[in-house]
């Protein structure tokens, strides 16, 4: 089976299984939209109890930035589920993927219709934010913004690939994956300027989460940010290469469950 046939088959299987549980799918999407607004809710509360809120960012600018985060997460989960790798290693089901002629990473393609919740949440956030902020909407800016979003997707993918690959070495990596996911989501949901310089540099280079939503949002909002955030695309590409290497190294060590 070729890659496209595989994608088509998996999409159809996922769609038909969701069609079977229509109530569940619609309810999950609706509740996930509410969850998507957690940080917006905290931000709203902060701005309602303080005069100026968070340094250098308005409520609507933060809402817009979180909208980008939701959009990127929605697009990622709509097509990919590399977290399943941890389960496959633990349960030995990775063996099935290894005997397939397709690339192992690509076999984690997964059409997850419930991820539309993040995209819907993002659209709602944009509707709330955009009338109250000024955006640079020239063609060149928009083209570059789209490129930034693609790099942002790559950043999510590489972080998830790296954390999931730890399963090759410590079998039960649930807490590591969950905690690193928490670090990623909690830290990237706020403007980077609230963190000390050292941490900002770390998030722009070694653990490039600044690129998930802060850099694209800052760019389109015309914000003045430190120079090292603009070199972070290179960091993201390097991080992706390291993640793939780490995954391949782990795969080489993988010996299955023997069952």
């Amino acid at each position: 089976m070729g890659l496209f046939s595989y994608i088509k088959e998996k999409t159809l299987i996922n769609l038909s299984s969701h069609a079977e549980y229509r109530f569940s799918t619609i309810a999950v999407i609706l509740i996930s939209i509410i969850f998507g607004f957690t940080t917006v809710f905290i931000t709203y509360s902060v701005y309602s109890i303080t005069e100026k809120g968070v340094p250098e960012w308005s409520f609507y600018e933060i809402t817009f930035m979180i909208g980008i985060y939701q959009l990127i997460m929605g697009l990622y989960h709509l097509t990919f589920d590399i977290e399943e790798l941890s389960f496959d290693v633990k349960e030995g089901t990775l063996d099935q993927k290894l005997v397939s002629p397709l690339n192992v990473i690509l076999q984690y393609y997964n059409f997850n219709i419930e991820s539309f919740s993040s995209i819907i949440a993002a659209v709602v956030m944009f509707i709330i934010a955009i009338p109250n902020i000024s955006l640079n909407l020239s063609i060149s800016y928009l083209v570059f913004f789209v490129i930034l979003l693609v790099i942002s997707l790559l950043s999510i993918f590489s972080i998830k690939l790296l954390t999931s690959s730890t399963a090759f070495f410590i079998t039960e990596n649930h807490s590591i994956v969950e905690n690193l996911n928490n670090i990623r989501s909690r830290f990237s949901n706020w403007p980077m300027n609230i963190y000390p310089k050292g941490l900002q540099l770390l998030f722009a280079t070694v653990f490039p989460i600044a690129f998930i939503c802060f850099v694209p949002a800052s760019f389109i909002l015309g914000k003045d940010v430190s120079f090292y955030f603009w070199i972070s695309p290179i960091a993201v590409i390097l991080f992706t290469l390291v993640s793939v290497k780490f995954f391949n190294y782990g795969l080489g060590k993988y010996s299955g469950t023997g069952s």
């Binding site: 902060v46 303080t50 809120g53 968070v54 340094p55 410590i170 039960e172 990596n173 649930h174 807490s175 590591i176 905690n179 690193l180 928490n182 670090i183 909690r186 830290f187 706020w190 609230i194 963190y195 000390p196 941490l199």
Partner: peptide, 24 residues
């Protein structure tokens, strides 16, 4: 290892709370 990682990484997440509220 998973248990230890959970205990050690957990407080790192808390840094965001510290930075956010200190800034506010």
């Amino acid at each position: 290892t998973d248990f230890i990682a959970d205990v050690l990484i957990g407080p790192l997440i808390f840094l965001v709370v510290q930075f956010l509220w200190t800034n506010i």
